[in-house]
Nucleic acid binder design. Structure first.
Length: 220
DNA sequence: AAGTCGGGGAT
DNA sequence: ATCCCAGACTT
C-alpha cells in the first residue's frame, strides 16, 4: 500500500466519521440480507434521498422473498413508481422467486450465486457481499468510478480502475469504506462542480493538481 | 457495443 | 432545458 493510497483511505474514513449519511435506514445493523438486497436494487441509478422516502414502508410490507412473491404485481409497481425504472418491480419479483426456489428463501453469500439472480449485476452482488456478509472487497458504482478516476488519474473505463479500487479496501471495514466513498462522491467529489476548495484529498488529487497547473499556466 | 428504462431533484 | 442518480437487461 503506497503512501498516497493510505492517505486516500484514512482521510476518507475520517471524513465519513464526521459527515457520513449514517441515518439512512438500510444502513441499520439490524437489516437482514434480503432487506439489504432490496435496498441495493432500489438504489440502482436512483438517489439515496429518493429511496429514503420509499424504503421503510417497502421492506415492512415485503420483509421476505415469500412475502414479495405473494404480493400483487400492481402494488409492487405502485411502490416503485416514484423512484422511476419501474421494471425493477418485475426484477424483484423474479429475483424473489429464484431465491425461494434455489436457495430456500435465503440470500446466498457467494458472488456467482448472487449474479445469477435477476436484477443483480456486478455492483449489487458485491455490495450485498460487503454489507450483508462482511466480505473484504469494493463495489464500483458511478460514484466510486468518478472518485477513483479523478484522484488517481485513471481512465474511468479501464480495467485498472476496478483493480485499483479493490486494493484499497481496509481490512475489516469494507462496509464503512464503501459508504465513505459513496457519501463523499455524492457531496464533495460531485459529478458537476466538485467542491475541491473544501476537499480533504485535494493535496494528493491528480485531477486537482492538473487543474492547478493549468490555472497557473493561464495566469502567466 | 449500444440502446433503453424513468421519476425527481439540482443547476 | 439539461444533467444526474448505490445499474442491469435486452437487442
Amino acid at each position: 500500500m503506497t503512501s498516497t493510497r493510505r492517505v486516500f483511505v484514512e482521510r476518507l474514513l475520517d471524513w465519513y466519521h464526521e459527515n457520513g449519511r449514517h441515518a439512512l435506514p438500510w444502513r441499520e445493523d439490524s437489516r437482514t440480507a434480503f432487506e439489504i438486497l432490496v435496498a441495493e436494487v432500489l438504489l440502482q441509478r436512483t438517489t439515496a434521498s429518493a429511496v429514503e422516502g420509499a424504503y421503510v414502508s417497502f421492506v415492512a410490507r415485503y420483509p421476505t422473498p415469500a412475502c414479495l412473491v405473494a404480493a400483487p404485481s400492481d402494488r409492487l409497481v405502485d411502490a416503485i413508481e416514484p423512484l422511476g425504472l419501474t421494471k425493477r418491480a418485475g426484477h424483484l419479483e423474479r429475483c424473489s422467486a429464484q431465491l425461494w426456489e434455489r436457495y430456500a428463501g435465503r440470500v446466498p453469500a457467494e458472488r456467482t450465486a448472487l449474479l445469477s439472480l435477476h436484477g443483480v449485476g456486478e455492483y449489487t452482488a458485491r455490495s450485498v457481499l460487503i454489507h450483508a456478509f462482511g466480505e473484504h472487497t469494493v463495489a464500483v458504482d458511478t460514484n466510486v468510478r468518478r472518485l477513483v478516476s479523478r484522484f488517481f488519474g485513471i481512465d474511468p473505463h479501464s480495467d485498472a480502475l476496478g483493480e485499483t479500487a479493490d486494493a484499497l479496501a481496509p481490512e475489516g471495514r469494507s462496509g464503512d469504506f464503501l459508504h465513505a466513498m459513496l457519501d463523499f462522491a455524492a457531496s464533495v467529489c460531485r459529478a458537476r462542480e466538485p467542491r475541491c476548495d473544501s476537499c480533504p484529498l485535494r493535496t494528493r488529487c491528480r485531477r486537482f493538481e492538473s487543474g492547478r497547473a493549468s490555472r497557473i499556466e493561464r495566469s502567466q
